[in-house]
């Protein structure tokens, strides 16, 4: 009963989409269509933080937020690489994360795609040369597409995903 009264008291709490939001929706539709073409079903993504500052994670989380809500287009994040079609790798690969990243890549069933998200994933960014960094993502596992930006916006990430799918 408290739940219902709360619903009535608060009313609609959603905000209108920001300008440019339609673009994201169009991209999401496109990702959905391409994923269906390639996998015959929705796209399942496993996110791997290989040593990022979590800036990229914030933006990736944005994809799942009520504003973009990628899940409604079948783009969803899963809890195990065993369920995933695509790995979304962020950050420079630290020495501690080399083995887990390789193991995750091996555990993902083929056909699989890898998208390296953020500048660090391509160039190691400000962490380049650190004793703790093993290298960029493509030095550790094969990468299908890079997403530039520090951090990249959700729309950029979607474009990167599309680019990876489009390569197949």
């Amino acid at each position: 009963m408290r739940l219902f009264s709360k619903i009535f008291q608060i009313g609609l709490a959603t905000e209108p989409l920001l300008p440019g939001g339609d673009d994201v929706v169009r991209l999401l539709h496109e990702v959905d269509g391409q994923a269906r073409r390639l996998f015959g079903r929705a796209l399942a993504i496993r996110e791997v933080d290989a040593g990022s500052c979590n800036g990229c994670e914030l933006e990736i989380t944005g994809l799942m937020s009520p504003v973009y809500d990628s899940e409604r287009f079948g783009v969803h994040f899963v809890a195990s690489p065993r369920h995933a079609d695509m790995l979304l790798v962020t950050g420079p690969v630290t020495r501690n994360m080399v083995v887990p990243l390789v193991k995750t890549y091996e555990a993902t069933p083929a056909p699989k795609l890898v998208v390296a998200v953020g500048d660090c994933a391509r160039t190691c960014g400000v962490f380049k040369g650190s004793y703790a960094v093993a290298g960029s993502v493509d030095q550790i596992i094969p990468v299908d597409a890079f997403v530039d930006g520090c951090p990249p916006e959700p729309a950029d990430i979607l474009r990167g995903i599309l680019a990876a799918i489009g390569r197949r």
């Binding site: 083995v99 193991k103 995750t104 555990a107």
Partner: peptide, 12 residues
């Protein structure tokens, strides 16, 4: 068929 290790959250 690809025989792999049991998924153990990427631990060494």
């Amino acid at each position: 068929l690809r025989v792999g290790e049991t998924w153990g959250c990427g631990r060494g």
